[in-house]
Design a protein around this nucleic acid. Structure first.
Length: 433
RNA sequence: GCCGCGUUCGUCUAGUGGUCUAGGACAUCGGGCUUUCAUCCCGGAAAUCACGGGUUCGACUCCCGUACGCGGUACCA
């Protein structure tokens, strides 16, 4: 039997990272089994419907590379995968249940008459365990609302059956309603799919992740300079672990190794610090060319786009996110605003005189300036002036950048060029008047 | 209240009866390298495996109970 899984988000607001997390497992499992990954929009709640969120879902999935095989726009026309367009279908099946007297009308709605005897059980793939509910805990529930739209509990079953979904991967907040779904399958005499109820991602208060935790949409991670590979890798680390204990691996590696039994059934907290570390690892692993390419895509309006790659080797070990590139390198292409207090932090008594000496040395340095000569020259000068080498180099650093922290000094000077370097030191001197 | 799921270092996790005086990673602390910041290397601290009972020669691992957390108990999903 073909494996068919579906991601069925409801467009009720900005999709957060939890949706992306669920999508990862849908995608990975479908690929592993050579099956299909289907996207379906569950937009039956007209009150909470937010049109924008539909595009946001697409954007998120596209960015992370979770391409769906069937669903809106891909592998099929839009409408068959959107529940609000399938009202007739739900009505037809509800009528069937009405005829069988398994359902009844009440205040304009159609309700399902649950079985009260016995228990309903299934085997859940997450945790590899049986879950059962006494049937007398299952109240009659609404199939079709009085506005004509189906409820999740009904539309979900109808669609999963009609779309031949083989495995339902979803959050464990649906565990409690699974008995209801199973009763509907039974009422129609349909074979239910296999269920895998994943734990939910939680916020810092251990409650289900939501917007009130400032939960971000995946594209926000993109906008902050995270790489999609790192985000996906990080997501994989939540709830799943590599059999060899590896922390860094690709999606295709995960596709090869994925098994439900390795899913941890307890909820996980999204720790952004680890994501930042991982992102840094991915950045360091990349070739300079690739990193430059990513930076150019990321920094669309960068003032020195064509010179940007020169700085790449200088910052590769220093940035965690693509966005970190800017504060670390803007002094290379932009005019420096000097601040007296920054110089003061160096604790050098006669900064101005020292800078003048530096300027003289620099003027006399044989061009093109060489790293070793540069270093030796200023170590010697530091000694003459009774300064530590650190003070000396920091002073030069501040004079050319206005900052205490920059990439490698000499490498930065190479990018600035000899004339610009001299000009900046002169500018620094005049500030200290 | 009732029903269900969960509970190993701050965080993500490994662990499926003995090799666990519990391993790894992030974060953290200390040291080394170093002209800043990083990277890199070395080392430390950090979980009485929620608690209490069983079962067993032996339990983090199996069973029962309790506590706590979360979810459901909606014409939300």
């Amino acid at each position: 039997m073909e494996v068919r899984v579906r991601l069925a988000p409801s467009p009720t607001g900005t999709p957060h990272i939890g949706t992306a997390w669920q999508a990862l497992f849908d995608f990975v499992f479908a690929k592993k089994m050579n099956g299909k990954f289907i996207l379906r929009l569950e937009d039956t709640d007209r009150e909470r419907y937010v049109p924008d969120s539909v595009t946001q879902i697409y954007e998120m999935l596209n960015w992370l590379g979770f391409d769906w095989d069937e669903g809106p726009d891909i592998g099929g026309p839009f409408e068959p995968y959107v529940q609000s367009k399938r009202l007739d279908i739900y009505k037809k099946y509800a009528t069937e249940l009405l005829d069988k007297e398994i359902a009844y009308k009440e205040e304009g709605a159609i309700k399902f008459k649950t079985t009260k005897d016995g228990e309903t059980k299934w085997h859940d793939l997450v945790g590899d365990k049986d879950i059962s509910f006494p049937n007398n805990t299952q109240e009659d529930f609404v199939l079709i609302k009085s506005d004509g739209y189906p409820t999740y509990n009904f539309a979900n079953v109808i669609d999963d059956h009609l779309m031949q979904i083989s495995h339902v991967l979803r959050g464990n907040e649906f565990i409690s309603s699974t008995p209801k779904h199973l009763m509907v399958y039974q009422a129609f005499g349909w074979q239910p799919p296999k269920f895998a109820h994943f734990p939910v991602l939680v916020g810092s208060d251990r409650a289900k992740l939501s917007k009130r935790h400032g939960a971000k949409g995946a594209w926000e991670f993109r906008d902050e300079g995270f790489l999609k590979e790192a985000v996906v890798n990080f997501l994989a680390l939540l709830g799943w672990s590599h059999p060899e204990g590896k922390e860094i691996f690709s999606v295709s590696e995960m596709i090869n190794l994925f098994e439900f039994k390795d899913i941890n059934a307890s909820s996980a907290y999204f720790d952004i610090q680890k994501l930042e570390w991982l992102n840094g690892e991915y950045i360091r692993k990349m070739s300079d060319e690739d990193l430059a390419e990513r930076l150019k895509e990321f920094l669309v309006d960068h003032p020195a786009k064509n010179k940007l790659e020169m700085a790449v080797p200088l910052i590769k070990d220093r940035i965690k996110k693509l966005s970190d590139f800017v504060p670390l390198t803007d002094f290379l292409w932009e005019k420096v605003e000097y601040e007296k207090e920054v110089f003061d932090k160096l604790n050098i008594k006669n900064e101005k005189q020292v800078l003048n000496s530096i300027l003289d040395e620099l003027k006399n340095l044989e061009r093109p300036w060489k790293s070793e000569v540069f270093e030796q020259t200023f170590r010697d000068l530091a000694q003459d002036l009774k300064l530590s080498a650190t003070q000396m180099f920091q002073l030069i650093r501040v004079a050319i950048s206005g900052q205490l922290v920059t990439p490698s000094l000499f490498e930065s000077i190479k990018i600035l060029g000899e004339e610009e370097t001299l000009n900046r030191i002169k500018a620094a001197i005049s500030l200290l008047e």
